[in-house]
């Protein structure tokens, strides 16, 4: 990973409304490195959409500043800012294609804005359509495409001006799980092949796990925690981080009265039957509440929630065993639970 391409410094945003001012962002400090896929995750209303719009100044921050390649966007004239935006492509949840233009005209649109000669623009657009696998749809209109195809066109359009960064605002939230996988794979491929830095805004942990190198968790207008995805997954420090990681697990279980712990496997132990050994060694039963394996940056990361015996001595024996064999674990508490109702 190279040096910072985007630096966010003490950024804050306050919206003035008739009912008074609403704080959307506060004290945001982030460094996004050249060539990485950086995730920003939070629940709805946490301020993540405002944050991504502050990066390209679609929303003007009320405090602090954003530096793009060391240049402060606050200090730029509107014309310079527009020029900078051409180095930052953006894709959206609702795709936002021009409905009255066909696919190739949509991809040519940003090139028209930069007054690229028509022939050159067409050539570039066809190249990009090949990259996203939609060559044969060049003459179709957005209304004739599926959601996944529309997002591919939007990606091609965002890449047209050879941007250094692509901002993805909930880019897969309107897509089904299968299409989501394909679009994420495409983004990853573009990141690896072209070296484009990708910033992903999402409310889904699975999106972060699938493609991101690093992640910032945003909660109530502030950054709760930042780090490598695998580190945060195995050892979330913030309450919101624990909630987001446990999120889908928790729906499937009811909390009993005794202690529950989350065990994290980082891919090394798959050869060893940890739970069986634990039960045999401690001679107590444990209740498996939830288990899942996720692919984080190509590494299989597992998590399991087990309920310990009611008896305190038995429970302690289990915990001591885990300590002895050096398996990371943490206690799951009621407040880690968020319901996705």
């Amino acid at each position: 990973m190279g040096e910072s391409i985007i630096q966010i410094r003490n950024l804050g945003k306050e919206f003035k409304t008739a009912a008074g001012s609403v704080r959307a962002l506060q004290d945001i400090n982030l460094d996004i490195r050249q060539g990485e896929i950086f995730g920003i995750i939070g629940l709805s209303g946490a301020g993540k959409s405002t944050l991504v719009r502050c990066i390209n100044y679609l929303e003007i921050p009320t405090e602090g500043e954003v530096l793009f390649e060391g240049q402060s966007l606050s200090a730029m004239t509107p014309a310079q800012r527009r020029k900078t935006r051409q180095s930052m492509g953006m894709i959206f949840q609702q795709f936002n294609l021009l409905a009255q233009r066909n696919v190739i005209q949509n991809v040519c649109f940003p090139l028209e804005l930069t007054k690229t000669p028509k022939k050159e623009a067409r050539q570039r657009a066809m190249e990009l359509l090949r990259t996203v696998g939609l060559e044969e749809k060049a003459k179709s209109y957005p209304a004739q495409l599926s959601g996944g195809q529309k997002q591919r066109v939007a990606i091609a359009r965002a890449l047209a001006t050879n941007p250094k960064v692509i901002l993805c605002d909930e880019a897969t939230s309107a897509l089904d799980p299968n299409t989501t996988k394909q679009i994420l794979a495409l983004l990853k491929e573009i990141n690896r092949a072209m070296g484009v830095t990708v910033i992903v805004i999402t409310h889904e942990m699975s999106v972060i796990e699938a493609i991101c190198d690093r992640v910032a968790i945003i909660d109530q207008s502030r950054i709760a925690e930042v780090g490598e995805v695998s580190d945060i997954f195995s050892d979330p420090k913030s309450r919101i981080g624990r909630q987001l990681i446990l999120g889908d697990a928790v729906n499937q279980m009811k909390f009993g009265s005794s202690m529950q712990i989350r065990i994290i496997f980082d891919g090394r132990e798959s050869a060893e039957p940890i739970i069986s050994n634990l039960v045999l060694a401690c001679k107590v039963p444990v209740n498996i509440m939830y288990a899942a394996t996720r692919d984080i940056g190509g590494k299989a990361m597992g998590q399991m929630i087990i309920q310990l015996p009611e008896d305190e001595a038995d429970a302690n024996r289990v915990i001591n065993y885990l300590k002895t064999i050096k398996i990371p674990y943490e206690e799951v508490e009621k407040h880690d639970v968020i319901s996705h109702s």
Binding site: N56, L58, A79, R82, K83, T84, R85, Q86, M88, G89, M90, F92, Q94, N96, L97, L98, A99, F109, P110, L113, T114, R157, T161, L167
Partner: peptide, 14 residues
């Protein structure tokens, strides 16, 4: 749709 205009702005349209 306001999103389409936002998209154009994000591409640096005047």
């Amino acid at each position: 749709d306001a999103g389409v205009i936002e998209a154009a702005q994000s591409m640096g349209a005047s």
